[in-house]
Design a protein around this nucleic acid. Structure first.
Lengths: 244, 244
DNA sequence: CGGGTCCTTGACCCCCCTCAAGGTCTGTGG
DNA sequence: CCACAGACCTTGAGGGGGGTCAAGGACCCG
């Protein structure tokens, strides 16, 4: 999954095999303890973040809004969307525990952010965040690392959108989700709708649904219910995905 | 154009209206003077870069190679490619004067780099580059800024690949090229082949060619020759591009 | 002037989109 | 616990945009 800005956790969350901490404190208006501590400078979200809870489909900010905050997702799933004037939508990425957004340097947000499920986020005013980067040189380097990782994910998504077939796209998507799931993820939760998946993969809901059916029929996945998939043939899926 | 990592010039080259310096010293094995000087720390490419000249279609490095250098394009055009196992190709971006590549933090390059035209580049060993970032905190912040700009371009490209029609893609591509051209660019050079454009826009050469013909027929462009286009109706093009 | 590469155009086909209908799941209220 | 409404998902039938295959034209360079 093309998480927008990968985790700022001290643990290198973009490393393959990363296991997010179990979701706790749903809705709690309190600072979240991070796994692992880092010697010199503290995680800014640990010390100075506000917590914000949002309901399903609620909008956090809209494309074009003044970019006031930098966010990090604590729990739940968030989608980042860009719209064409006539309403066509592209979902840039889905964010989960630990992912960040709003880090672009533009004055305004360049995409909208909406809650896919009810979610909890932390946020820091951008002005304060930028001041922090002046004080803590290591912070800029850590963000550079995260942003570079995001860029790599974006490039993979370009290959997917530019050159892969519908089944390949869906297979790739499932494998990406699995890679972000606890234990490597034989079972994968799909918190988002088929329409969201379609707008992420450059397809329509119908085509996504048909691709799921094909993968099911060929024995690579089982649909436990509409939003929980079991990957029964990981190698077959990887072959169907033509690599990640 | 989705330049991979925008300029490290002291002049903020990702600002709209940026005018690259005229190409000079083609093939010269000497350090290139930069426009503008910056007070505290020097541009690393100014002081410690090797210069490398490559011929048309020559490969600079290949996907998977050990990432030894960070590059900056001095003159010419470079394409960054990703390949699927069966040979399908996606061009991540075209690089021109001032653009950087090789900054990802991975141990290996994640795409190939090839000269579209004969080109001149500067390069710095990654190890030295990273040491520099430790010494000069401002460098990391500048790179963060450049990488974030790249990420924005990548997101625009996702919208293009996921949701735009063939004509919209080509119109968008022409406007992006024009935005990077001297004087805003009523006339735009296309150094790359139709096949390159196709692999950048997620199309085939034939479809790209037909899209050019449609834009020509509807009076928005004139093909002065296969590789030089005049944008005769900028607003019409922008409408045909559906923004971006 | 000749050969090769690249570009354009045409004819045809297929994958995915569109439109439509029916099925499934979920949450809510009785 | 069940009934029901609504949203979501799946499946089918048909159509279209762009891919594929093929041929001819333009350009480049020796």
């Amino acid at each position: 999954m093309a998480a927008h800005l990968a985790a700022l956790d001290s643990t290198a969350s973009h490393r393959p095999g990363y296991v997010p901490a179990p979701i706790a404190m749903r809705g709690a208006a309190k600072v979240i303890a991070l796994t692992g501590t880092r010697a010199p400078e503290a995680d800014p979200f640990e010390t100075m973040a506000e917590t914000q809870a949002v309901g399903r489909d609620q909008m956090l900010f809209s494309e074009g809004d003044a970019a006031r905050h930098v966010y990090r997702v604590v729990s739940g799933t968030v989608r980042l969307c860009k719209l064409l004037p006539d309403g066509r939508r592209q979902i840039i990425g889905f964010l989960q525990h630990g992912d960040m957004m709003g880090l672009s340097l533009a004055q305004n947000y360049l995409y909208s952010a909406e809650a896919v499920t009810s979610a909890v986020l932390q946020r820091i005013p951008r002005s304060r965040f930028e001041a922090l980067m002046d004080e803590q040189p290591a912070l800029a380097r850590r963000l550079l690392s995260l942003t570079a990782t995001e860029l790599v994910a974006a490039q993979d998504q370009m290959v997917l959108l530019g050159r892969k077939t519908a089944v390949e796209r869906v297979a790739t998507f499932l494998l990406r989700l699995a890679a972000r799931t606890i234990g490597g993820g034989r079972r994968v939760q799909l918190p988002m709708s088929r329409a969201d998946i379609a707008d992420h993969l450059g397809l329509t809901t119908e085509t996504v649904s048909r691709a799921f059916t094909k993968l099911k029929t060929s024995g690579m996945i089982r649909l436990l219910d509409g939003h929980l998939v079991e990957l029964t043939d990981r190698e077959g899926l990887a072959a169907a995905a033509e690599c990640a």
